Simulated assay, not measured.
Amino acid sequence: MSTPRTVLVVGGGAAGSAVTILLRRAGLAVDLIEAKDDWNATAGSGITLQGNALRVLRELGVWERVEESGYGFGSVGITAPDGTVLHVQDDLRTGGDDLPASVGMQRPRLQRILIDAVRASGARIRLGTRAETFEQDAGGVSVRFTDGTGGRYDLVIAADGLGSTTRTAIGIPDRPEPTGMAIWRIAAPRPTGVVRTDLAYGGPAYIAGYCPTSDTTLYAYVVEANRDRASIPPESYADEMRRLARAYGGHWPEITGHITDPAQVNYAWFDRLLVEGSWHRGRVVLIGDAAHCCPPTLAQGAALSLEDAWVLAQLLTGADHWDDALLRAYYERRIARVRPVVEASVQIGRWQLDGVRDADVPGLMARTMTMLRELP
């Protein structure tokens, strides 16, 4: 019996967990390391998963748990700042007609579902561990870990996020760049009438929106021009978000009443990243936010990361030889799909920052989402 090929996955977020599950299903030996001791099991407020993300989650075998844990809906509402509904648009089912257009869910809940699936896969998991050095030759990669141990792998998959240290270690110079916007987010109880995402444009923020994440919860957010993070003390986060949110009507007064604990409010800048040329060096390859990131204006960040994992796993498990040509094919297949999403997500924000009133936002969104309905 031949020895199975060995893979190290660096990072246990959505992309890293997904590729681990798929490779283990094919019989490969997979080690997953995650820098956080808690595996990010409590981090984040909420997430919007569109159909193309749900399609991959179904492939992972976790769709039923996602469906039970989240809140499915099929439209988005556009409102005035006072809460008046101006338009309701049906969402395109990018995952196919047998899946909802979107599911909102609590981000920690999604992470827990993926953690359970990784554990059930039989992968070897090491938490609180980072990869320190990578030494490559024609046969594989020797990795030294921060705890002083080492390992030898046929392939290393870097899924260690926007600030990927693996990307830097293998000599890829691309770095995330701020787009000029920032977002305040919080998880809160769901008002009874909230049954979809609603977006308000105008007022003191560029966007004020919310998304139901279960029968009883939602996450709410306001988007503004980015500010110097050092000038905003964390203990003022609730006050800052509440100041912006109280200008909005409709369901917002009820939501705003729950913005009281600064520890529950997240503030982050919007970033753009698209690694050009290739997403690998030798036998180390990037997936997810380590390779690309875009503002959440199209809610496609997690979906694109999950698609990366699905496509790379297909290529790896279907090939007799893992070589430069295979990893180049992975890049070429993904860049054609990822680039339009990154560019559209950034453009929508740019139009808002520049105050362009006649921008064809609906048309750009429709063209991009139609493209995503095709299989990756």
Rank of each mutant, 00 (worst) to 15 (best):
D116L: 03
A366E: 14
I186S: 00
L28R: 14
L49E: 08
V265P: 01
Y331V: 05
G150H: 09
R107C: 06
A14V: 08
S75M: 13
T166Q: 01
D147W: 06
A245W: 03
Y237G: 04
G150W: 08
S121P: 03
I125S: 04
A200W: 02
M241Y: 04
S45D: 10
D160C: 06
P296A: 04
I255Y: 02
L99G: 04
V85L: 08
I47A: 01
T216R: 12
L110P: 07
V156R: 14
I259R: 03
V284Y: 07
R357T: 12
L54S: 11
L286Q: 00
R350V: 12
G203W: 11
G288N: 03
M371V: 01
T149G: 13
P173Y: 12
I21N: 12
G96T: 11
L86E: 00
G249A: 01
R58S: 09
G288E: 02
L92M: 14
L353Q: 14
P295M: 12
V284Q: 06
P234M: 02
I232F: 01
L28H: 13
Q106S: 15
R229F: 13
I255H: 03
D261F: 05
Q111H: 15
T256A: 15
A302V: 15
L110G: 13
L218C: 10
A299M: 08
L110E: 11
Q136P: 02
V85Q: 07
R152I: 08
P189G: 01
E59Y: 04
D37E: 15
R93S: 05
A43T: 10
G148W: 08
M1T: 06
R242T: 07
Y201L: 15
G150F: 06
H258V: 05
A187D: 07
R65T: 15
V275I: 11
I255G: 01
A26F: 09
V194A: 00
E307K: 10
G83P: 00
T129C: 07
D174S: 09
A101V: 07
V195I: 13
